[in-house]
Nucleic acid binder design. Structure first.
Lengths: 200, 200
DNA sequence: ACAAAATTTAACCATTTGGTTAAATATATC
DNA sequence: GATATATTTAACCAAATGGTTAAATTTTGT
């Protein structure tokens, strides 16, 4: 049936608890319970909450970011790239709706330690995308825009709807099924919106 | 000099601590210290941490949302509205950079109690903006777009850069001064981007 | 000056929490 | 079957934390 190692059970449980409760809100006991083991064994695998959290957080980031870099630095035409980014990321976060908020949150609350130690610190090479935007601009295909502006706009449009879901649903009085459908629409609407905005 | 009542000192301190540490991360002792009083007096004013938190959270929301409703439901032309929203909200959050993440976070972590009790539950009437978008579309001034799509796009573009600042700065290796300048640019770039995207 | 309200002091309490320990038991490995 | 590793049990600890209490002191309003 399930060939799940104890460490995997721990990681899965820890991930769930940390992501839903945050580092400060998470309880070691709850993680142990969810993993179906006891606290002693939990500490047998990870000496401290901090250590466990760091392991999980690194996993989460490794899960979340490389895909972004991959598409961004691919040789796809700009428009295809935008559509693929939207599709891939909305698909990804649809299965992990609380992940964005969790990451943003922990990143803002423990900036130094987390960032500097996590392999994250190198950033992503934006040269390729920068050139691509410049070329499209020279061709007259799009208006001028900096990589940073372009990237942040896309990321905002893709990620915020997950992080801000509760707020937005409340403002608009949208129920859950409607919001799911809405998000499904956005997989194509966001790229359309972005490409439209880029027209000269 | 400073005519600050004890309750004001408490609220100011609690606000700071809650916003930077979150409900679970905040400590009553820290709030008392920051307010320049002692724990006994803190409990003399607010019987429990939860009560204090609720008071603060309600304040924060009242601070944050009505302005949005105001502009959205005003009689301004669409384009002016978009520019004003951007300017007002980026100005507002520039002075309270951690507020968005705090609100999103607490809202997601205690949905029922917070939402249902806070006067928030009524939502905002979108009829006016919906009509405005429809009229502009009939005039051929913009392409067709739902209020929800329009609103969420704007909010995403305005709010995410604050909530996701750490992540984005790390991805792009942008330093603090650059990011401030970048945000300043966005006050006009975001409305431009949105209005561009709306062209038929 | 007097009473009421605000504030401090300081000790105290119960609970939660991360973490430890040691012995017992089960499981795998050789 | 012996040995090492994994897991449980259960008791325990120290620190942190939210909260209380009662008495003393200060401030304020009348």
């Amino acid at each position: 049936m399930e060939e799940q190692t104890t460490e995997e059970k721990i990681k899965e449980a820890a991930r769930k608890v940390f992501i839903t409760k945050g580092m400060t809100g998470a309880r070691m006991q709850e993680i142990a319970d969810l993993a179906g083991i006891n606290k002693a064994l939990l500490h047998y695998y990870y000496r401290s909450k901090e250590q466990l959290f760091n392991a999980i957080f690194e996993d989460v980031l490794k899960d979340m970011l490389p895909g972004l870099f991959g598409i961004v630095n691919s040789d796809l035409p700009l428009e295809v790239k935008v559509y693929q980014l939207a599709d891939k990321y909305m698909e990804f976060f649809s299965k992990r709706p609380e992940m964005p908020l969790f990451v943003l949150n922990e990143l803002q609350r423990h900036p130094k330690e987390l960032i500097e130690r996590l392999h994250l610190q190198k950033g992503i090479d934006l040269t390729h995308l920068r050139n691509q935007l410049e070329e499209e601009y020279q061709k007259g295909a799009i208006r001028q825009i900096s990589v940073e502006m372009f990237l942040l706009n896309i990321i905002s449009l893709l990620v915020f709807p997950f992080a801000g879901r509760t707020l937005f649903q409340n403002i608009t009085q949208m129920d859950d099924p409607s919001y799911l459908e809405f998000q499904e629409q956005r997989k194509t609407e966001v790229p359309k919106f972005v490409m439209n905005a880029l027209r000269p």
